[in-house]
Design a protein around this nucleic acid. Sequence first.
RNA 1: GCGCCCGUAGCUCAACGGACAGAGCACCAGACUUCGGAUCUGGGGGUUGCGGGUUCGAAUCCUGCCGGGCGCGCCA
Length: 553
Amino acid sequence: MLLESYLEPYVREALDRIGAGGLVEPEFEVPRLPEHGDLATTVALQLARHLRRPPRQIAEELLAQLRLPGEEVTAEVAGAGFLNFRFSPTFYTRMLARIASEGDAYGRLPLGAGKRANVEYVSANPTGPLHLGHGRNAALGDTIANLLDWCGYQVTREYYFNNAGNQMLLLGRSVYARYRQLLGDEYPFPEEGYHGDYIWDIARLLLEQYGDRLREETEEHLRIARHTGEQWCFERIRQTLRRMGIEHDVYFNEDSLYRDGKVAAILEALRQRELLYEKDGALWIALSRFGRQDRVLVKSSGEGTYRLPDIAYHCDKLERGYDLIVDVLGADHIATIEDVLTAVAALGYDTSRIKVVLHQFVTLTEGGQQVKMSKRSGKSYTLDELLEELGPDVVRFFFLMRAPSTHLEFDLELARQQSELNPVFYLQYAHARICSIFRQARQRGIAWREDADTDCLRHPAEQALIRVLLRFPERLAKAAQLFEPQLLAEYLREVAQQFHAFYHECRILGAETEEQMHARFRLAQVTRTVLRNGLRVLGISAPERMEREPVTA
RNA sequence: GCGCCCGUAGCUCAACGGACAGAGCACCAGACUUCGGAUCUGGGGGUUGCGGGUUCGAAUCCUGCCGGGCGCGCCA
């Protein structure tokens, strides 16, 4: 971003000079091969269409009209008509000094300054513990929120839940059944009830608090069972999320949409637009008018289907004035969210402010075999079990490693490795290593200078590292714009890689001159900042030292 | 049957429509008596599922097949 914005005006100027201004937007890319320079533009190739002339010829003309300042950057024509730019080593060392002066704020961007964003994620109903899919959703949503925060947005993290529907009634009945069974009664377990062991835990809690006073099956006693179950599940969910470093700002209760009359208002608005009709005693929404299927909004029993409050919820979020609304949802919501957004748009709202991030499912594997059940509990893996076994850093990183749109294979065996195989440690190790160098320096009584001249950093490894560090803001912005955290994870791997390579090539404490040592300190410091900031966005700790687990061979 | 996602090295995955399709793991061969070897350097490995199309250029866009996943309820 820094480098692109530096070159852009010059390229624009050259385009004007050859009479091609406004025909194409100058865009840049980082060539794969180093021989192709540091940055390249394909404007000439794109212009070939408009000007009906060979691209290479256009590139030559552009080059002739390019008025680059001084010798810090050079350009050449290559290949089919690429314009390749190369920055001088001095240019890079100066840029390093510039980003070093930004300190811990390096990477923060003003893209969303003054704007408000709402990110909704997890949103599991309080009927039981969180599972793997929730974990991916949680890690994604939280990281997207972090990304937007770093881009300058004022971010609200929101959790939408329903504690009023059938699911909750079933939870209450399941708990009550277990409670009665604990009392020794022959009490039937509800069909399709929740079979998890945690229901027993809640029942025991009920027994502790109420003794046998709930024995008589009444509405009130069932309500108590349900309420206790809800409280317990919600507390457990929040605890699990806290272990992952997640805390929401707003817990939005679906039921409040009914209480506040928002659902009724939506129905009225839909009716006015003649989008509702009755059939078989139910109230339908005519989505077929927008190329979709009609759906029931109010059942013949008088209850709303989940789509109804969902529509009201999205309208409510829009009315709260957010510039950007992000829904993080599992792949099973693909069809329904489209319905909801279609309805919201039909009501005249600007749904372009709503971005839906759909993520595919997670499969747990071990040694290439799919794992369905936890060995310990015999039930399907809960997020808690995963966190306990692997720790939050590994869990978050694995959930963030892949693009949301792809199926995620979570390799338990690899995740358990406390070794070089585990990609998380590769990043954390680079950070710990830098911290270790600074510890060493302190021990040896070396105080490094904040203002050291960086001009001597001419080694290829040093230059390569600087080049990577300069890309941080751009890569962060891209991850935020596309809602794809794995881009940042991949970038950090590149940073760590370049640093490790530099570390092997160039000694810091054993540098040839004082000047060189201090310059390398600055380089290491910026690297540490980038790693720390990047890991923070991913919600992963940046340890100052790492203890290797005792080898158990 | 319809909708969405995916198909790239032995495995897991990258690659704003750009130049010779790249990483990690696995496999093979190497590297500091000095800053942490959880590191680094090198090597072999590919008809990008298959066929058409769009264009200066396609793993990427369109289209038809094949294969896998997920949805398609007056459940959420």
